[in-house]
Design a protein around this nucleic acid. Structure first.
Lengths: 151, 151
DNA sequence: GAATTGATTGTGTATCATTCTCATTAAAGA
DNA sequence: TCTTTAATGAGAATGATACACAATCAATTC
């Protein structure tokens, strides 16, 4: 949960014998310029880049998202739409969690500092190196409760 | 997060105009008899049932798992293997969370009562009806840290 | 307890997110 | 500048999950 620049990304990649490519730099930038509370799927990122004239292949997008998630740069979110979403993995005070309606998929972000503390402590206790820590609440939103729709 | 019996499952289904079938009852039983800390994927459940001579189709398994998750009977876990896992959604004191190594997928369960309290409070504040609440910690386990393997 | 209704099942097929293959390209270090 | 090998792009392959539909049967009604 560090704040990354192209330079710090480059040195962290090079340390492991990997490379900073224009594609990776571009993708990092997209996430850094994304409005708050906005997250992207692979497909969405692909089309967003297409729209900006950046032709990065879908394969590379998938590879880069996975890489950055495993480096702790991005968070991988499971928001119940059947595909993953990604957002910058930001430290306090931007760190947040998700409350998801399992019926309509409406998602609310919320903050709670003690959760990150719990996560940090738990990982530390087991000797794990923390990358991300997210509380996911599955629930039924007020509208869907009233709707009495099939599950 | 209630404890279900075949009877209580039946009445909850019937309330909504749905039915208790032998397949649904069998699947509930499997989860109730599962050892602690054990969770199943759709495919695993399918083969487990096959082994017991219960021929429930894979479609029905998928449908039932989804239904029960949306009713709050089961928890849907994303444990990084590329497919979902399910376990009984048990209340305090069995409620727990997961610490996952993103490299080798080794998973540790841990308990923390304050998280469920936070989840309950958050859902309530927004008027959501809570189904499940899980803290997922993504991290790198001690062995994988030493291994210096590719991400 | 027989008849009715429509929810549920099973089989096979379709879908769609994600990963893989492999030839080509191009970062990084010498 | 040259060498090495990681990374990319295009398309094919994979695999988890959803769907369609005819047949079945759980719950309710008479």
């Amino acid at each position: 949960m560090t704040v990354y620049t192209a330079t710090s990304l480059k040195s962290e990649l090079n340390e492991r014998g990997w490379r900073l490519t224009p594609q990776r730099e571009t993708i990092l930038q997209v996430f850094q310029n994304l409005p708050k509370a906005k997250h992207l799927s692979a497909e969405e990122l692909y089309h967003l880049l297409q729209g900006e004239g950046e032709n990065i292949s879908l394969s590379t997008i998938y590879r880069t998202l996975k890489l950055m998630a495993r480096m702790g740069i991005l968070r991988e979110l499971e928001l119940a739409e059947g595909h993953k979403h990604y957002e910058l993995n930001q430290p306090y005070p931007h760190h947040h969690h998700h409350l998801i309606c399992v019926r309509c998929n409406k998602t609310i972000e919320f903050k709670n500092d003690s959760i990150l503390k719990t996560g940090t402590k738990t990982a530390q206790k087991e000797g794990y190196h923390l990358l991300d820590c997210q509380l996911t609440i599955h629930a039924v939103c007020p509208m869907c409760q009233r709707a009495l729709l099939p599950i």
